[in-house]
């Protein structure tokens, strides 16, 4: 797969722009003046240690939490995302770590859950099946034997693929994936990472939250690192190597020794 890794940051306005976002829960400040850009056609990896604020930031973007301060710009326009419904309406879909699939329902039923198509008051199964098949084929999710099999019979990677296809089917422009490869085997991880690249190639903005540095360097075009609620760095993936990324994640800054291999950073 062709790696779309630009040497210069995207010139156009990013799809989603977060400026000065702050969030606290009681006395606990979870995010301090966070800036984040999520351009279309790029995979942005959000990295950080446990408790760095990755989930809080994600939930502020997807409408689960309301930020206390700061502004979110969608396609250049300031927006207030007050609920996950608002987010869906804009085109922001989140694939949660637990995937939120119903094991007892089949793939088609899961993909259309909550947005079923009707014909004369009854479910239009044929139409939904065709649409689901089209979406899965376009994402080249071809390992499932039948899209009418219950999700309980799918492997972890296939479930992840179904959850992603469900998110993509609704003309979403930004897909946020929380730890998509956690608990997956080698081959399953490959399936999912390929899927992430395909989303990017379709021109979607993708944000991947991951602890797994292999995955981050494999798919990410851009990397953003949170440390104790602050965005410590945000740059193209080629600006990092393993050592520097780990150092950013654990200490929030880069010591001089680690800087040796890495290209120059704007402080």
């Amino acid at each position: 797969m062709a790696q779309v890794t630009p040497d210069s940051p995207p010139a156009t306005e990013p799809l989603l722009k977060v400026r000065g976002l702050e969030k606290h829960f009681g006395a606990v400040q979870a995010l301090y003046a966070v800036d984040l850009d999520l351009p279309a056609g790029y995979v942005t990896a959000l990295c950080g240690d446990n408790g760095a604020g990755k989930s809080v930031l994600t939930k502020c973007i997807s409408g689960v939490y309301q930020p206390d301060h700061g502004q979110v710009f969608w396609e250049g326009m300031p927006v207030h995302v007050r609920s996950t419904r608002d987010a869906s309406r804009l085109g922001i879909e989140t694939v949660y770590q637990d995937l939120a699939l119903c094991d007892n329902l089949d793939i088609v039923q899961n993909m259309f859950l909550g947005r079923e198509r009707l014909r004369r008051a009854f479910l239009d199964e044929d139409d939904m099946e065709r649409e689901a098949a089209k979406t899965l084929a376009s994402l080249r999710v071809t390992t499932v034997r039948s899209i009418r099999q219950p999700v309980a019979s799918l492997s972890g990677g296939q479930r992840q693929s179904v959850a992603v296809a469900k998110a993509v089917m609704w003309n979403s422009k930004l897909v946020i994936m929380d730890e998509p490869t956690a608990a997956l085997g080698v081959n399953q991880t490959r399936q999912v990472l390929d899927l992430v690249k395909r989303l990017r190639d379709r021109g979607l903005a993708v944000m991947v939250i991951s602890h797994n540095l292999n995955d981050v360097f494999e798919v990410a075009d851009r990397i953003a690192v949170l440390h104790l609620g602050r965005m410590v760095t945000q740059d193209k993936a080629s600006a990092f190597d393993r050592q520097s990324l780990v150092e950013y994640m654990t200490t929030g800054s880069l010591s001089r020794t680690a800087r040796r291999d890495a290209p120059a950073e704007t402080s």
């Binding site: 949660y96 939120a100 079923e116």
Partner: peptide, 27 residues
């Protein structure tokens, strides 16, 4: 017919399978 051919029935099965997923789907 109600349980297998209508939205209502689909949601009953969805809630029985994974109530949290059903809630997140806006049901």
């Amino acid at each position: 017919i109600l349980l297998e051919r209508t939205k209502y029935g689909r949601y009953v099965y969805a809630i029985g399978g994974n109530a949290e997923a059903a809630r997140r789907a806006g049901i």
